[in-house]
C-alpha cells in the first residue's frame, strides 16, 4: 500500500483512526444489511472482523512488520472483545453458537458434509503445522542492547578531562557572546510540520545569513561538519535514514525521534559523539556499532558545534539538570 503512507511520528494516531473508521464502516454495513433483511449472522461477522484486524490490517498495513508474538497478543485481545460482543445476552450467545452446533449435529446433507470435511482436514492441518514447526528454522537471534547506557562521571577527550555533570556547551551563546540557553532555544527551527527555520530573513534565525553571529553562526559551522561526516548514516533530515543506514546493525539513531537527543543532556551526547560505538559499555554492544569515535576525526570545538546543530535542526532542547 504505497498510496497511503504511515507518517513517522503520527503512526499510532493514524492506526487508531483507521481502525476506528473501518469498524464504523462495518457497523454501518451490518446495520444496512440487517435493514434490508439479509443480515450477517454474528458468527460470521465476528470471524470477519477478527480476520480483518489480525490477518490483514496488523499483518500487512503496519510497517515495519509487527513481530508475531505481539500480533498473537492482539489476536487474543481482539478475540476476547469479539466474544464479549457475541455473548452480550443469552439469545445472542445461542445465535452465535448455532452454526457450530448445527455442524456438530450434522442434521442435513450440507452440515453433514461440512462436518466430514472438517473432521478430515483438521487432523491433517494440525499434523502439517506440527511438522512445519518442528523443522529447523533459522531466524535471526534477538539480542537486546541498551541504546542509552549509563554515562561515566568524566570523559577524557583530546587530553582534557570533562566532568559530564558540569561541562558546558561553549557555543550556546547569544549575539554578545554570553552563555544563554534561553536565547539559543528561542532560535531553533519551528517544531511544527517540516521543522523549518523560523525566519529566513533574520540573521538570528538563519544560519546562512551573512550577518549571522554568535549561536546561529556556530549552528552553521556545526551543520557543515554534519554534512561532511554524519549524514551518511544519520540522514539529511537527521532521521537516521542516511545512505548506509540500513547496511549497518544497530541502525543509526533518529534524532527527530523524541526518544533520542531530546531526552539527553548535551554532555551525554558529547560523550557519545566523542567516544563512539567502540566507547560504549558492554550492554551497548560496542563490537557491533559502526559509530566512529569522533575524537579521531574532529576537534572538541567541532564536536560541540555539531551537537548544537543537531538540536537546532530537530527543534529540541537538550535536557538540563534543573
Amino acid at each position: 500500500m504505497t498510496w497511503l503512507k504511515l507518517v513517522e511520528g503520527y503512526m499510532p494516531m493514524q492506526m487508531i483512526t483507521e481502525l476506528a473508521v473501518c469498524i464504523l464502516f462495518f457497523s454501518i454495513c451490518n446495520y444496512l444489511l440487517k435493514k434490508a433483511g439479509i443480515g450477517v449472522p454474528k458468527f460470521w461477522a465476528g470471524i470477519l472482523v477478527w480476520c480483518f484486524v489480525n490477518l490483514f490490517y496488523l499483518k500487512y498495513r503496519i510497517y515495519p512488520p509487527i513481530p508475531f508474538s505481539v500480533r498473537a497478543i492482539y489476536g487474543t485481545v481482539s478475540a476476547c472483545g469479539i466474544f464479549m460482543w457475541v455473548s452480550g445476552s443469552q439469545e445472542e450467545w445461542l445465535e452465535f453458537k448455532r452454526p457450530i452446533i448445527n455442524v456438530l449435529d450434522g442434521n442435513n446433507f450440507f452440515t453433514k458434509s461440512i462436518r466430514t470435511v472438517l473432521l478430515l482436514l483438521l487432523p491433517i492441518g494440525l499434523g502439517a503445522f506440527a511438522y512445519n514447526s518442528l523443522l529447523p528454522s533459522f531466524e535471526e537471534p534477538i539480542e537486546l542492547r541498551t541504546v542509552h547506557p549509563a554515562p561515566p562521571a568524566t570523559t577524557k577527550v583530546h587530553g582534557k578531562t570533562y566532568v559530564l555533570q558540569t561541562a558546558q556547551q561553549p557555543y550556546r551563546i547569544d549575539t554578545d557572546g554570553k552563555y544563554d540557553p534561553a536565547y539559543s532555544n528561542a532560535h531553533i527551527v519551528d517544531q511544527s510540520m517540516g521543522r523549518l527555520m523560523k525566519d529566513v530573513n533574520s540573521a538570528e534565525d538563519n544560519p546562512w545569513d551573512p550577518n549571522a553571529k554568535g549561536y546561529i553562526k556556530h549552528v552553521r559551522e556545526g551543520g557543515e561538519i554534519f554534512f561532511q561526516n554524519c549524514h551518511f548514516c544519520h540522514g539529511d533530515n537527521l532521521n537516521g535514514r542516511g545512505l548506509w543506514a540500513f547496511a549497518f546493525n544497530p541502525i543509526p539513531a533518529n534524532f527527530t525521534d523524541a526518544g533520542t537527543i531530546a531526552q539527553l543532556q548535551e554532555t551525554f551526547v558529547f560523550w557519545r559523539v566523542a567516544k563512539g560505538g567502540i566507547g560504549l559499555p558492554g550492554e551497548g554492544f560496542p563490537w557491533a556499532s559502526v559509530m566512529p569515535p569522533w575524537e579521531q576525526h574532529l576537534t572538541v570545538d567541532e564536536i560541540w558545534k555539531v551537537i548544537m546543530f543537531e538540536y537546532w535542526h530537530t527543534g529540541y532542547y537538550p535536557r538540563t539538570w534543573d
Binding site: 483438521l122 487432523p123 491433517i124 494440525l126 499434523g127 502439517a128 503445522f129 506440527a130 511438522y131 518442528l134 523443522l135 529447523p136 533459522f138 535471526e140 537471534p141 547496511a247 549497518f248 546493525n249 557491533a288 559502526v290
Partner: peptide, 28 residues
C-alpha cells in the same frame, strides 16, 4: 563493510518431526 551476519549450517530434517506430526494428528 557489512554489519554482522550469521552463517548457519542447516542440519538435516530430524526424523522425529514426522513422528510428532503423526502423533498430533492422531490426538486430534
Amino acid at each position: 563493510v557489512s554489519a554482522f551476519y550469521y552463517l548457519v549450517l542447516e542440519p538435516p530434517i530430524p526424523s522425529e518431526a514426522k513422528w510428532y506430526a503423526g502423533l498430533a494428528a492422531v490426538g486430534l
